[in-house]
Write a protein that binds this DNA or RNA. Structure first.
Lengths: 210, 210
DNA sequence: ACTTTAGCTGACCGATCGGTCAGTTCCTGC
DNA sequence: GCAGGAACTGACCGATCGGTCAGCTAAAGT
């Protein structure tokens, strides 16, 4: 549900119905399952069945379950790496920080499920290449935002912003019926919240609020 | 690791070494595994082995894997129910809200792993009695804090506070080496952060900061 | 027309899953 | 001494896991 139909329905060409790339379909279904019930809780059978293929077909397109996870998560990781690269290559001022928050929010909105998987399952998937890469990236992200003078509350601001955003975008609809999120208000609200949380962290012009 | 040794080491009595309750040991180990690799990713064999028992012994003490999960999570749920009960039974003013935030932070610190499991795996464990109970409780918690006039950003403040706190207390040590958290600074820092996040939600006297 | 090749599948593999059951051990009450 | 029960275990069950492999089909190249 709530995936763009283009990615899941067959595309009718002039001659016959042709799949828009079985690999892409499988990636979409796999991502949904990984986010919903976890990597360990998802079987290749379920992924195959939800896309209308056989388990063998999944393993034809992807070398292994781990490789499938890798291909599913890589686009998000590369996007985040690009955002972080942009941010660290600019001088640290209010404008670049605002730009970063906007980029980051857009990233969160575009790759909600991937982020959810990375945030919530990274520790249990240690050893898988793509996961270790993401972990290193998030550490770099924390360093870039918190720099070396990280107080406990500053580090925690970063953690709360990261985990909170990931949670409220996906796991939140666990508790409140279906989807609470009005997608239009969501982006500005997220930007406001993350700005509040991250603003004091690295600027150092912070007096401990109150 | 990082569990109180009293709960895991044998207690030497006058006559011989006696286990301080195999059930308690198993609950502790099960909770750690559930939080670390997920409910689906944890096998009864692993739980048994980590506690020095056989798989059969786990199923002797607990009727099923689901029942074990229930017994592991119930204390945390009951504590949160008590906190919410206290909060809703008082008049809604700044003092009772401050009391609630403090209680809630202490709850988070005491039941980190349970909260982490509930927050991150509730959706994948739908149908298990204890999980459904927790879901209903969290919805009630959201209602109590957000009341009926919930704007998008207000609801999101609640979600970010909940998910962010749960994440930064447990999953955070996924990315930063071992445990970053200095336990003394942690409580006041969490109280400050949650007060910031939750304060504007229901008080409505908020002017958009900045 | 024949070959090649990509896409896909069912049958099968060893391992492991949650769970059952018969039995062993050991402590306690009588 | 003995019966009874609690704690615990190994053997076993059907199901499912991730993964391999030989073979099927249909389109494309020649």
């Amino acid at each position: 549900m709530q995936i763009e139909p283009e990615a899941i329905l067959p595309v009718v060409t002039a001659t016959a119905t042709v799949r828009p790339g079985a690999g892409a379909e499988l990636r979409v279904m796999a991502l949904q399952q990984f986010a919903a019930v976890g990597f360990a809780g998802t079987s290749l059978q379920q992924i195959a069945a939800s896309a209308g293929y056989s388990k063998s077909s999944v393993l034809y397109h992807f070398a292994s379950k781990d490789a499938l996870l890798g291909e599913v998560l890589t686009p998000a990781i590369e996007r985040l790496e690009a955002i972080l690269g942009d941010f660290t290559s600019t001088s640290e001022d209010a404008a670049s920080r605002r730009q970063f928050v906007e980029d980051f929010v857009d990233f969160l909105l575009q790759y909600r499920l991937e982020v959810h998987v990375l945030i919530n399952q990274a520790q249990s998937l240690k050893g898988i290449a793509v996961i270790d890469r993401a972990r290193a990236l998030i550490v770099r992200l924390g360093d870039a935002l918190c720099q070396e003078h990280a107080t406990t509350i500053d580090r925690m601001r970063f953690g709360v912003a990261l985990g909170g955003a990931a949670y409220s975008l996906v796991a939140g609809l666990t508790f409140f019926d279906e989807d609470i999120t009005p997608p239009d208000d969501l982006r500005p609200a997220l930007i406001t919240l993350l700005s509040e949380l991250l603003a004091p962290v690295a600027v150092r012009t912070t007096q401990p609020r109150k």
